[in-house]
Design a protein around this nucleic acid. Structure first.
Lengths: 193, 193
DNA sequence: AAAATGATAGAACGATCTTTCTCTTTTTGC
DNA sequence: GCAAAAAGAGAAAGATCGTTCTATCATTTT
């Protein structure tokens, strides 16, 4: 009872739904993308959609969950690479810059979602807040391990800089933002540039 | 012929329309606020709305125009205060911080609008791009007058920091962002902190 | 006095929104 | 093979979206 999957493991329709919705939400905004569009491009019917998600907002939260999991995975991979703590700081900064340049050319999924959800008590905004708090504390622990003085302050500055890199990369182009970002980030983290 | 105003000067209905729309767009997002809501709270009928604006998007652009004019006015006032160039840099940084703390607690109107308008060729995105380019060059001229070395680079960093302050102030609270912002801004501008 | 202009009022357009429904077909677990 | 669950197909609900329309009233300009 309560089997949650068919033969292949987790439901394939649900995966397609979530993947195409994530792409559309990020590329075009959340309120601009209707359910019809999502199920059409995912090749799924309305009934199937509403069997897997209670409503559209749950799909939005699942989309943010995917983004959150991706970043956590990247951090976990960097930490599992066996680099020493002081090197890890540099790797993290490089990784953040790479992520903006390669994958997140339409800004930050969480910032963009927050722009469309003004209610701070909504599930979407809660997901945004949780992600940001995790990211900040993760940065702080990396900086603490590298024996950076005032790791908490440096982590707060890096959060600021990543927000700015995402926004600036989207609106001004990453090439114009990169020098200012890397210089400020390296200085904030106390790593020699 | 082609008179554009009634007795009182510029149309009063248009002003109310633009003011309430600006507040609603900023507080709740653009796609989330319908025309019905705007004309209802402005106490204006649909016909009146469509006489003054060809469509909703024109109202959105007018809203961004108001925000743009406000910031330009603040810069003009600071420059007209008769402060010396090097003091002016500090005044500008203080002014930016004050603006985030006091008026822009829901993030940056331009960043938020860009999140909802992915088409870079749209009128909204063009307004965003023009505002950002003006802001950057205005900062650069202030920094140049203060004889800051690499004024262009410093201006780029200040743009980054203001974006970050707006976003962070909205999502994390200004109190948690302020120290990181002022420290980074003062250092970027080459002013002694 | 006559004509023009701007605002008011309210119905109505077609389109799209999210959600629910019924019915049939395929696939899976035992 | 058989019962149960998941997916497919499509209609339809009710709400709201942005927009257009006609008709009336007040004010002002000539």
């Amino acid at each position: 009872m309560a089997s949650r999957s068919t033969s292949t493991g987790t439901s394939e329709a649900r995966e397609r739904l979530l993947r195409t919705a994530s792409e559309l939400f990020y590329r075009e905004g959340i309120h601009s993308v209707g359910v019809d569009r999502i199920i059409g491009e995912a090749g799924v019917t309305r009934a199937t959609f509403y069997r897997h998600f209670p409503g559209k907002e749950d799909l939005v939260e699942a989309y943010l969950g995917v983004e959150d999991a991706n970043i956590r995975g990247a951090f976990a991979a960097a930490e599992a690479s066996g680099a020493e703590p002081k090197q890890l700081v540099g790797l993290v900064i490089e990784g953040l810059a790479d992520d903006v340049a390669r994958h997140h050319t339409r800004g930050c999924p969480f910032i963009n979602a927050a722009a469309e959800y003004p209610d701070a008590d909504s599930g979407v905004r809660r997901a945004v807040a949780e992600h940001r708090e995790w990211f900040r504390s993760e940065l702080e622990s990396v900086l603490t391990a590298a024996e950076v003085e005032d790791a908490a302050g440096a982590a707060a500055q890096l959060v600021l800089l990543r927000d700015a890199a995402m926004v600036g990369g989207y609106l001004d182009g990453w090439e114009r933002v990169r020098p200012a970002f890397t210089e400020a980030a390296v200085r904030a983290a106390g790593v020699r540039g």
